[in-house]
Write a protein that binds this DNA or RNA. Structure first.
Length: 450
RNA sequence: GGAAGCGUGGCAGAGCGGCCGAAUGCACUCGCCUUGAAAGCGAGAGUCCCGAGAGGGUCCGGGGGUUCGAAUCCCUCCGCUUCCGCCA
């Protein structure tokens, strides 16, 4: 069986002893506990859990650990006895002890080797098991199975034929897609003049809203991260094809697909005091996505790009509060929509349609007059302890009790799609676009005119 | 990229190949003292894994080696600091 690299760059170059592997991702005991109902839950997202293999791996690993521990314990006793025998001066007894010690060395090595192999197989197995979808989600596997929770604002019915954002952007002279293609290829964008200023204004508005009104701490983080970081939030090892990868010499780095990755991993391998939770973090970063598997979808305009910028919201909370925290986070993303006066609706995604690491996801969909449709603008998810286990984000309560944190994140909001919505919902009969009032202090202008 | 130095528990900082999971100080927890607090005195406390439990094992930057036995010796990788080179 091929052995994948352990979830750390250094370790990948320097494969180590099995016992050094951190205990991450799914807890195999929890997964196997009938009360967890993992088989049924995973089946809802089309994943078949091979219980027999998992049980076998776990039992084999544990017995190897035990054999090694016992041999090592005896080895320690013998080593101490050798010293005593040397001083008492009974060479024969000493020789016998040394011989036994040499023998034990082999036994320990064999048990460790077996442990290492089984541990690697177990890690490999667990790393590819997605999170368990919440029972509160509807059945289904596509966005058409999503269920509407509520709608806000009136989908504006225009008394003239609406343009989509590409036509609007070109007429206004703020969008230049041909030149973007010249520079980098399809699925990139160039914004010009007031378009670029509007993009900057949206980002500033969102950051101010979340830091000042919702209590988020703003960070500036790397957009190029290592393998361990990508594994912590669940992008790796399964979704390498979705990422842009770079590096120099033998150093590999990945471009982040969202600020969720660096923000959540800020506390990887740390133990957080429960009284410091919840943590609420935000960052405005570029996001890079290969969009493999989306050929032909949304090829026009700013909806689906290889590079876009986004203001991301991340919350690190106590595990038992994660469901409530999801509603809090959703309210913050909705506040951004309402602040900009953009008509939208909230839907619950179907169990088979949520991301690998998520257990519950709300999407916010904005009304786009140009398409006469609601389109996804923000995704707000609860990951439970799934990411925290993979990344090693632990908690410690005042009474000393330890556990894993829960993580959540949501777009709050993606700048490009927000700009699309502003153009389309704000368009007037004469081809001009009215800028949302809340943005005017940031733009310095209240409308865009051809 | 070149040269030198350094990586020990939350922090600081000792550490002869076995008596080192590791001195000491600060911080921390719980007592005592006090009207309360501080100071003082006493006690305690790390992590992760296996185990029903008793208990056992792991961890001195990572990995490997020497040895009956490694925080201590050797190799290697990584990181940090300083100097030089390059650079926004």
């Amino acid at each position: 069986m091929p052995r994948p690299p352990p979830p750390e760059g250094e370790a990948a170059r320097n494969p180590g002893r099995a016992r050094r592997y951190p205990r991450v991702m799914h807890d195999p005991r929890v997964l196997l506990d009938p009360a967890t109902d993992a088989v049924r839950k995973l089946a809802r997202r089309g994943f078949t859990l091979d219980v027999a293999s998992l049980e076998k791996l776990l039992a084999g690993r544990n017995s190897a650990i035990q054999r090694g521990d016992e041999a090592r314990a005896e080895s320690k006793r013998v080593a101490t006895a050798v010293k005593g025998a040397g001083r008492e001066g009974d060479p024969q007894e000493r020789d016998a002890l040394v011989a036994r010690a040499r023998e034990l060395k082999g036994i320990v090595a064999a048990a460790e080797e077996e442990h290492r192999e089984l541990e690697a197989e177990l890690q490999d197995f667990l790393l590819s098991v997605p999170n368990l979808p919440s029972d509160d989600l509807p059945d289904g596997a596509s966005d058409e199975d999503a269920v509407q929770v509520r709608a806000w604002g009136e989908p504006r019915q225009l008394d003239f034929p609406p343009l989509d954002h590409v036509d609007l952007g070109e007429k206004l002279g703020i969008l230049d897609l041909p030149r973007a293609t010249k520079l980098a290829g399809p699925r990139f964008a160039v914004l010009r003049g007031k378009g670029a200023a509007l993009e900057r204004a949206i980002a500033r508005y969102l950051l101010d809203l979340h830091t000042e009104r919702h209590g988020y701490l703003e960070w500036s983080v790397p957009t190029l991260v290592n393998r361990a970081t990508m594994t912590g939030t669940g992008q790796l090892p399964k979704f390498e094809q979705d990422l842009f990868k770079t590096g120099v010499a033998d150093r590999e780095l990945y471009l982040i697909p969202t600020a969720e990755v660096p923000l959540t991993n800020l506390h990887a391998k740390e133990t957080l005091a429960v009284e410091d939770l919840p943590l609420a973090y935000t960052a405005h970063t570029p996001c890079f996505r290969s969009e493999a598997g989306s050929y032909g979808r949304d090829t026009r305009g700013l909806i689906r790009l290889h590079e876009f910028s986004k203001v991301e919201l991340v919350r690190v909370v106590e595990a038992e509060h994660s469901r409530d925290e999801l509603e809090v986070l959703l309210s913050h993303a909705e506040a951004a929509m309402q602040g900009l006066g953009l008509a939208y609706r909230v839907v619950k995604l179907a169990a088979g349609d949520i991301g690998f690491s998520a257990e519950f996801t709300y999407d916010i969909e904005v009304w786009l007059p140009g398409q006469q449709k609601y389109r996804e603008i923000s995704s707000v998810s609860n990951f439970g302890t799934f990411q925290a286990r993979r990344a090693g984000i632990r908690t410690k309560a005042k009474d000393g009790r330890r556990g894993f944190a829960a993580t959540l994140n949501g777009s709050g909001l993606p700048v490009g799609r927000t700009l699309v919505a502003i153009l389309e919902q704000g368009q007037q009969a004469d081809g001009s676009v009215r800028i949302p009032e809340a943005l005017v202090p940031y733009t310095g202008f209240a409308e865009l005119t051809p």
